[in-house]
């Protein structure tokens, strides 16, 4: 127990108590700059959230962001992994090349892409060579969110690609040899062996990206400040501003609980899927 003690103390102070407080505060109007007038308000915060324009928009933005990044990053990573797995030369270079953006922090990537997305920036210059007019990208309410989504896919794709490559290498090569004996074509082999074998991993990766999308904050914080006109405002951004900028701890706690609810459901689904997959593999070994 002495060994567990230090961790237990820190867990209590920095995880258990904050979690309990978040839950309690979510039912109050706790305002950190004037804590004396705190009242218990029941579910008022929760119902208020449903009508809170900012929060609704933040939630909507998060979902829109998710709808772009999940297919883009997920399918992109899968395609890259399939191609790199096939290729016989420069494999190592490709792995490194597509992994490079992962090495860069979100703050770095955001700072870099502010330049790239700038109206006179390199991206518009490239597009100009193809005869496309300059785009406003992060400066327009309609393009800002998709732009950030594309950038985020670019940043994270290499990570998921490595996971998929690991999965592809784990497929028993005897399966392909057996299919070869059964006169399966390349497409058939892909459809009947690769895809089914990768399916659980796909689900895992897609949920991972979804969770990442829910947690998005740094990119809009650095690039757009949540704008233009709240078009890149996210749930975590709202929590951050409500709690640590406006000191409305009560309302921020309620948002935190709602946010945690979604993320934890996703994590549980992911864990269940991964577990099933692990069990399936264990069965196979028997």
């Amino acid at each position: 127990m002495a060994f567990f003690g230090p961790a237990l103390v820190l867990l209590t102070i920095f995880l258990f108590i904050p979690m309990i407080l978040t839950l309690i505060f979510s039912f109050t109007d706790f305002f950190a700059l004037n804590p004396d007038i705190t009242h218990f308000v029941g579910f008022e915060n929760y119902s208020q959230l449903f009508h809170d324009e900012d929060f609704r928009q933040a939630f909507g933005n998060t979902v829109r962001f998710m709808l772009i990044i999940v297919p883009l990053q997920g399918l992109g990573a899968l395609s890259l992994a399939l191609l790199i797995n096939k290729v016989t030369h420069c494999k190592k270079y490709f792995k490194v090349a597509f992994f490079v953006p992962v090495v860069m922090s979100l703050a770095v990537v955001s700072t870099l892409w502010i330049q790239i997305f700038s109206p006179e920036g390199i991206l518009n210059s490239i597009l100009g060579n193809f005869g496309i007019d300059p785009q406003p990208f992060i400066n327009s309410a309609s393009q800002a969110l998709p732009s950030i989504a594309v950038m985020s896919s670019w940043q994270g794709m290499g990570y998921q690609m490595i996971i998929f490559l690991g999965g592809l290498q784990a497929i028993n090569p005897a399966l392909y040899e057996a299919a070869e004996m059964d006169h399966a074509s390349g497409w058939k082999k892909f459809k009947d062996i690769t895809l089914p074998e990768l399916k659980p991993l796909c689900i895992f990766v897609f949920i991972t990206i979804t969770i990442g999308a829910f947690r998005m904050l740094v990119q809009p914080m650095i690039m757009t400040g949540g704008g233009p006109s709240h078009s890149t405002y996210t749930m975590v951004y709202d929590i951050y501003e409500t709690g640590t900028v406006n000191w409305e701890i009560g309302l921020a706690s309620t948002m935190s609980i709602v946010f945690a609810f979604f993320v934890m459901i996703l994590t549980v689904i992911q864990t269940v899927v991964t577990k099933e997959r692990g069990n399936k593999h264990a069965d196979k070994k028997k």
Partner: peptide
């Protein structure tokens, strides 16, 4: 538990 939940606290 996502850390963002308790970072306010």
């Amino acid at each position: 538990v996502p850390m963002e939940t308790i970072i306010t606290i």
